[in-house]
């Protein structure tokens, strides 16, 4: 299970070279979209917001992703099991534990805890939509952006180089962790280790046998990577650097930035002045 999840994460965040609309955009405008979706999503997932706002956001992200050449539908179909699992898990969690459960019109009630109301259903829909929208936008950004372009673009807006480079290197390490975990797991299983044996304490101990060699392996690898990194004259210092490609901000980039950042600013203003009610206040 854990391997399947890690492998999926690895596939979802890996850049795919293509000449599509999303690929041609500046990384900064894609980051603006990310910020916009997360900001709008937080608003849409609030209990006082109508449930269809969340659904609309999800639909909008889905459409812009597809229009920009990212095969969102195909990806979701390929991983339908995972998508269904998210929808079911978060839906149920929110149905039972969302803040709206005490309020609204009761749909059914199983004493003492399970009270489902129309508000809790709406809350569940908007929260799950938010989660799916956030995942989609991360996939859109990472699948269409080279990490080096992202790093360079961030340094242009004065984000410390170390921060952007460490983020990029961390994403690069996902396959390494997956591979290390698999090797370590198989090596210990081949010596009779069974993770699903015994009681809770026994299982925790077994997981330790798995994680310890993994940690040792990863530490050694990180050490080696650090040496290699510096041997190539690379470092995290903030100083003038150049980039292989010129990253221009074109009209579609400006449109995306204004729409997301400007829109978010307007929304924040409206919420702050009380024109739009954000938090549920009964």
């Amino acid at each position: 299970m854990i391997f399947a999840l890690l492998e999926m994460a690895e596939e979802l965040v890996s850049y795919e070279h293509a000449d599509r609309r999303w690929h041609r955009l500046n990384p900064l405008s894609k980051l603006a979209l990310l910020v916009g979706v997360l900001g709008f999503g937080i608003f849409a997932a609030a209990p006082a917001t109508p449930w269809y706002y969340g659904v609309m956001l999800f639909t909008a992200v889905f459409i812009v992703g597809e229009m920009g050449g990212i095969p969102i539908y195909q990806e979701m179909r390929k991983r339908r099991g995972f998508v269904i699992a998210i929808v079911v898990t978060f839906g149920i969690m929110n149905l039972f534990f969302g803040r709206g459960t005490e309020l609204g019109r009761e749909l059914f009630y199983i004493p003492p805890w399970f009270r489902i109301t129309d508000r809790s259903v709406h809350f569940a829909i908007s929260k799950t939509s938010f989660l799916l929208s956030s995942l989609l936008v991360v996939i859109i950004v990472l699948k269409s952006t080279r990490l080096s372009d992202m790093t360079y673009a961030l340094t242009q807006v004065k984000v410390p180089y170390a921060l952007s480079m460490i983020t990029a290197t961390s994403i690069r390490c996902i396959p390494m962790v997956t591979n290390g975990l698999r090797i370590s797991y198989n090596a210990q299983r081949a010596r009779g280790l069974e993770l699903d044996r015994g009681g809770f304490r026994e299982r925790v101990k077994q997981i330790g046998f798995l994680l310890l060699p993994l940690m040792m392996m990863l530490l050694k690898t990180v050490d080696q990577m650090s040496i290699i990194f510096q041997s190539r004259g690379l470092d995290f210092a903030s100083r003038p650097r150049t980039h292989l490609r010129e990253l221009k901000i074109t009209a579609p980039d400006w449109a995306l930035i204004v729409l997301n950042i400007g829109g978010l600013a307007v929304l924040s203003l409206l919420v702050a002045t009380g024109v739009i009610k954000w938090q549920f206040r009964g």
Partner: peptide
Amino acid sequence: PEIQLFATSVEDEVAMSLESMAVPR
């Protein structure tokens, strides 16, 4: 070969050190 490559494309990998040295585009 697995741990000495950091970038997402071959040309980016080759350019990485040059970018760090601020070689003109």
